[in-house]
Structure formats: structure tokens, C-alpha cells
Amino acid sequence: MASLSPGWVRYAERVLGRPVTPHLCTARSPQQVMGSLVKDYFARQQNVPPEKIFHIVVAPCHDKKLEALREGFFTALHGARGTDCVLTSGEVAQMMEQSDLSVKDAAVDTLFGDVKEAVVRRHDGVGSDGHLAHVFRHAAKELFGEHVEEITYRALRNKDFHEVTLEKNGEVLLRFAAAYGFRNIQNMVLKLKKGKCPYHFVEVLACPRGCLNGRGQAQTEDGHADKALLRQMEGIYSDIPVQRPESSAHVQELYQEWLEGTDSPKVQQVLHTTYQTPEPCTDSLDMKW
């Protein structure tokens, strides 16, 4: 089960425990990986001590703030927190309005000096998803020698629950699902506990319609999600050209120069994590669903 959604991970650890946590993907979330990139790779590039870098992340989700505080997500190499501050996109928009700032006033830079704004690329998916598509293609190729180009999502119970299958000669080889929102998550967990979950991989996101619909996004005056803005963001995102990570020269460069190969101990140390089921906590950071 995917582990990129901090709300889902916290719910799994704090409430569900076993038998769910052993099924969580060990890959760190994008925010955690970026923290390692900034505090280790970028710091060495710039010859700056990691503790001298203040790393700010802009996210559509309030739960990313809690994720940044997790003790286990300090950068393993230097003992420094990978993300020092998380601002939601709604908070940034509010600050810009109050200060009369425009996005056009800010220059766009990158970890790689030869990448320009005009060649920004995205992963597969309509917004916050994409893990399912990447894992599905990789599994199809590595396990069955099948090269998958187009992926067809089939809606089942509702618009936030989809199924993807790989079939050959009438046999289902892979069965993946995308489950967004806690209604779908709870149904999936119930099947898992009963030993009746038919899926090899599930892309789980806590927010209905995914992270673009996160509670940290700009909202209407009455505190509801701005549906028109959501549709606009989905349209803008879908217009960005797709580049699969395995075809990126920069990804290959990072694996060789920074991570010392694709199967090195450093890969496990920097890109993967573990999950626990701690004792019930009553501090101010605890969440009740």
C-alpha cells in the first residue's frame, strides 16, 4: 500500500496498527526524499553545512506539517531535520495577498543548473497520483515481460475508487487499485483484515480526489474547497509534458553520484523508512480521526 499520504500513514500507525502497517510501502514520501536531497546532495554541491540550510516546503496538505516533525524522518546522514518548515499553498496565497506579491516576482531555480523552467516535466497521473502507474508498469515488465504504455482506470464504487488490471490470455496477472478518501480506505482496510483484499498494490490518498484537493489549498470564503480552482489546477497540471523517472538523466545521475548505485546501502538509508505502532499518545501532535 502506498505511503505518500501522511494522513493515511498516521491513521495506519496510530489507529490500525497490524495487520496494516507491514503492508505500507517503505519508500519515503516525496517531501522526505526532497529533504535528503536538499540537506545532503545540494548542501555538498554548495559546500554549505546542512544545519545552515533552512528548507521550506509548500504543500497542499496540513498533515505534511506533522510529517516534517516525525522523529524517524530526520536525515539519516547528518542528523538534521530534512524539512524545517511546511507552509500550505493556502497560507502562501494568503501571505502573498497581504504583501501584494506576485508569483512573477520570484525566479525559479533547481537542484540542476541546466534545467530551465521551460522544460519542467511531471510524472504520470492527473495530479497527486502517479505511484500506481509507475509501479504497475515496472511490475508488468519485471514480473511478466509486458511493456505497458496506456493504463486504463476503471471506476468501481465511486469516482475515488479505481481498478487497473493486467490481463493475458484471459488471466489477470496484476490487479491494482486507487483508493482516495477515508470511506474507500476503510472499505479497503476491512477487506485486508478479513484476508479478502484482491489487490497486489493500492495507491492510498487520504483526501477525496487526491492531494490537489487537500485541505491546505486555497478555499472559498465559507471554508469549502474551491471546485473551480481544483478543475483549473487539474487542467494546468495535465498540460505539463510527462517524463518517466527511469528515462531522466538527472535521476540516473543522482543514483550514481549521490546514492552510489541503485542497490547500495545508501539507497536503503536515504530513500526508505520503517513504520511502527506506538503506544497511544495524548500530546498535541496526536490526531483523532
Rank of each mutant, 00 (worst) to 15 (best):
M1C: 01
M1G: 02
W8L: 03
Y11V: 01
R14S: 10
L16I: 08
R18F: 08
R18G: 06
T21H: 01
P22A: 08
R28W: 12
M34T: 04
G35P: 09
L37E: 07
D40W: 12
Y41E: 03
Y41G: 00
R44H: 08
R44P: 01
Q46F: 09
V48Q: 05
V48C: 15
P49K: 11
P50G: 09
E51W: 07
H55Y: 10
V57H: 05
P60R: 10
C61M: 13
K64P: 00
E71I: 03
E71S: 03
G72I: 10
F74N: 09
L77R: 13
G79E: 12
R81F: 06
R81A: 07
G82I: 13
T88Q: 11
Q94A: 12
M95C: 09
M96S: 03
M96D: 04
S99Q: 10
K104D: 15
A107H: 01
V108Y: 02
V108W: 02
D109Y: 03
D109V: 12
E117Y: 11
V119Y: 02
R122A: 10
H123T: 10
D129T: 12
G130D: 06
G130W: 05
V135C: 01
F136S: 01
R137T: 03
H138Y: 11
H138M: 12
E142L: 06
F144R: 11
G145N: 12
E146C: 08
V148Q: 06
V148W: 02
R154M: 05
A155I: 08
R157N: 08
K159E: 10
H162D: 02
V164K: 04
L166M: 03
G170I: 15
E171Y: 11
V172L: 11
L173V: 05
A179E: 07
Y180W: 13
I185C: 02
Q186T: 10
K191V: 09
L192I: 14
K193I: 11
G195S: 02
K196Y: 07
K196F: 09
C197F: 08
V202C: 04
L205I: 12
A206P: 05
R209V: 11
G210S: 05
D226L: 13
L229R: 15
G235Y: 03
G235I: 01
S238K: 07
P241A: 14
E246G: 04
E246H: 12
A249Q: 01
H250K: 10
H250Q: 07
V251G: 01
L254W: 00
E257I: 00
L259M: 04
D263G: 01
T277R: 09
C281R: 06
C281L: 06
T282K: 11
S284W: 00
D286T: 13
